[in-house]
Computed example of a mutant assay.
Amino acid sequence: MTFNDDAKYSGKGVRKSGRRTGLAVGGGGLGLVAVVLLSQLLGVDLTGLLGGGTAGGGNQSETTALTGCYTGADADADVECRVGLTRDSLEDYWSEQAPAMGIGYASPTINLFIDSVDTGCGAATSAVGPFYCPADQLIYLDTAFYDTLRTEFGATAGPLAQLYVVGHEWGHHIQNLAGTFATADTSQTGPASDAVRVEVQADCFAGAWLGSATETTDADGVRLLDPITDAQIADALNAASAIGDDRIQEKTQGQVNPETWTHGSGEMRQRWFQAGYTNGAEACDTFAVADAEL
């Protein structure tokens, strides 16, 4: 188990969207994070999908609040409740850590959706995987992605790995607040590119949060998470490695081409996660290190 059974969910920061079928991806562009991850998932460059067009195929129901989630015991038993308490832990950590780093902080919202969703960055399907949209400052997640990690990428995708995925996307929100997206040159690819530096920094931010996550508390001061075990950390590292560029290229193309990397190798993603986990968010300036040290 991951969460303290007695911890209470705040009821804030997570919403659910209904189902829509027959979506055609298009419209105003999905944004860097979504495009890159979708290309990773399928092993090909899919940026051409982000041209003109609009979402179609029916109306999506209105969003609703996450319900039926009250305690850490609920989070250990239900994947959506797990996202809710993960949100509370991330909020507790970053509401203090971001200002300490000189970043003006505002909370993101997590949107749990099924199959497809309209976002401030355009229309997306579950094939995109989890992503952060800077335009509306929302994290979008279809929890079926965790099954994809297991079946398509061979990751164990246990509870802490699931927390890591949310923490990575929250890391992109911190980057957005810090102005990183505005200054990074994401037009280039390769192991030392800004695109990779953005992604491994988000891994590092996720590690930094998990390194302090057992100190985060609910509104009553009750700790949210139980102590994290070595086996759980190994599970998170397994997920980070499974979605490395080299692992995905080898699986989908049969060969590794570092010049096209946008997220970094599995080893890089693991190493930067560990850097944050061990040394905190201050160790996550991936833009300050030399190419050979990235």
Rank of each mutant, 00 (worst) to 15 (best):
T229A: 11
T63P: 03
T214P: 09
S10C: 01
L85R: 02
R247F: 01
Q232W: 05
P130F: 15
Q232C: 03
T286V: 03
V79C: 02
T2G: 02
L210D: 08
G43A: 06
A206V: 04
I110D: 08
F181K: 10
S265T: 15
T2W: 13
R19P: 00
C204N: 09
P258T: 04
L210A: 14
L160N: 08
G211V: 01
R223S: 15
A98E: 07
M101S: 09
A202L: 02
W261D: 00
G266V: 06
Q175R: 07
N111V: 15
V222D: 05
A292K: 11
Q60F: 11
D78V: 04
T229S: 15
T252H: 01
Q162E: 15
D88L: 00
I248K: 01
R150N: 07
N59K: 14
G266P: 09
S39C: 12
Q60S: 03
Q255T: 12
L138H: 14
F113I: 06
G22V: 02
E169F: 15
Y93R: 10
L112Y: 12
L38T: 11
C284P: 01
G266Q: 07
T217C: 03
D92H: 08
N4H: 08
T71Q: 01
A231I: 00
A288R: 12
G171E: 05
T229V: 10
A184Y: 12
A157V: 07
A98M: 08
F3A: 13
R15L: 05
L163N: 13
G280P: 07
F113R: 06
E80F: 08
V256R: 02
C81F: 04
T186M: 12
L49K: 07
K12I: 07
S241V: 06
E91Q: 13
G190I: 06
L42S: 13
R15C: 03
R82T: 03
T278A: 14
I139M: 04
F205M: 07
G52A: 13
L90V: 04
G22E: 03
I139H: 08
L41W: 07
L225G: 06
D203M: 05
V33P: 01
F131T: 01
L225H: 07
T54R: 12
S212E: 15
A208D: 07
A239N: 05
Y140M: 01
A195K: 03
A77I: 02
T86R: 10
C81V: 04
Y164E: 14
C121N: 14
P99F: 05
R269F: 10
E96P: 01
G171F: 06
A290V: 01
R20W: 02
L37E: 05
T119F: 10
G221M: 13
C121H: 11
C284T: 00
C133T: 15
D246P: 03
S95F: 00
V79Y: 08
D147C: 09
D245S: 05
A157F: 04
G31V: 11
A127T: 09
G120T: 10
T180I: 09
G57I: 09
A75Y: 00
Y132V: 12
Y277I: 02
I103G: 12
V36R: 08
S107G: 06
R15H: 05
C69H: 12
L41K: 14
V166C: 05
A161K: 11
F113P: 04
T151R: 11
T148H: 00
I248H: 00
Q253Y: 00
L160T: 09
T260W: 02
A195N: 01
V117H: 10
G26V: 07
Q255I: 08
G27V: 08
